[in-house]
Design a binder for these strands. Sequence first.
DNA 1: CCTCCTCTAGATTGATCGCTCTAGCGATAG
DNA 2: CTATCGCTAGAGCGATCAATCTAGAGGAGG
Lengths: 195, 195
Amino acid sequence: MAATRDRIVDASAELFRRQGYNATGVKQIVTEAQAPFGSLYHFFPGGKEQLAAEAVRTSGAMYELLIPAVFDPAPDLITGVRQFFAGAAAHLVETDYEDACPIATVALEVSSASEILRQACADVFESWIEAGTGMYEGAGLTPERARELTIAMLAALEGAFVLARALRSTEPLGVAGEVIAQTVQRAIDEGPRRP
Amino acid sequence: MAATRDRIVDASAELFRRQGYNATGVKQIVTEAQAPFGSLYHFFPGGKEQLAAEAVRTSGAMYELLIPAVFDPAPDLITGVRQFFAGAAAHLVETDYEDACPIATVALEVSSASEILRQACADVFESWIEAGTGMYEGAGLTPERARELTIAMLAALEGAFVLARALRSTEPLGVAGEVIAQTVQRAIDEGPRRP
DNA sequence: CCTCCTCTAGATTGATCGCTCTAGCGATAG
DNA sequence: CTATCGCTAGAGCGATCAATCTAGAGGAGG
């Protein structure tokens, strides 16, 4: 049974999301996970770094599921974009501005400190980009334009999270979402024409 | 003479920018600043937190100067936007993807941990927003639209930094800058009309 | 000259860090 | 039954953390 291992990964992912990598201690992780301390190094002989890499990939995969979960039921792409940002804003308020992107804080902390963790974050971001690109391609956009729109959407979302958490306001998520929604609208209206 | 104090603040700002708040130790700060350890707590009796708050405000004020420095000499707003993102990308590459936003990492780390530091980051972001808003207003946009465009631009920049550092690629800065440039272009073309 | 005060200088503190180690529990196999 | 093995359990390691403390250097004012 790997229930203990799962609890450790889940607790790590949540703590890293809210506090970041460096502010989260292994003692705190096992306490939060209600797991014995020895189990952490039994399952993760590579220590905190290996555990964080797995937590990043796991929470990244979970967050990626939000993309189809929001966009598929939406009547159109633009509504999907608006609902994606609105949902992110709502969840941020519900958690008192603690739950934003699950890996952004870790990504900034480690991108010049741990190549292993930087690569894990890069893989997650690339995975999100591919998922979003496929979705936009399904709406008739060229692969290049679809990728650009996805990257722009993710950048707007990540940056809006940074501003929103510091300002304790959902305003950045609102305006960023609206800018992306209108950009997507225009891309669809223009169709496959290349500028 | 406050040269020692200044060196401490400058060294802190640079280390926080590259490593974040939690990964930077006070010993490392005084070593980097070539300052005696005792001086740190002489000038900053509030300790690391007070020092970080001042470093955030100082580097935030410095970075704000980049806005007019890039936009004023530009022939038009859209060119200014493109040059701003292109300059950020160039500096990122020059520093091997270490020097992005001076306060973003700290902002994410502390926004749920230290109210003092969160407020310092919020003040800096709000100051940037006001500076950008004034600039867009000068181009004939309404105050509301100018503020929205500024927030969208900053969010796109911050998010593109997150993606760029993790992916070690300037692609996010390129596409985010282009989306903002075209959004600004359209806002100007539409003029003061309200949607 | 001496006194005062700002700043330098670093040893030291207690707490906490990530991690290692040994001991033993409990289920399963022979 | 015993033996094995995955996992639990936590004491304790050296290192490092932010911060405090005392002592003195160095210049200014009297």
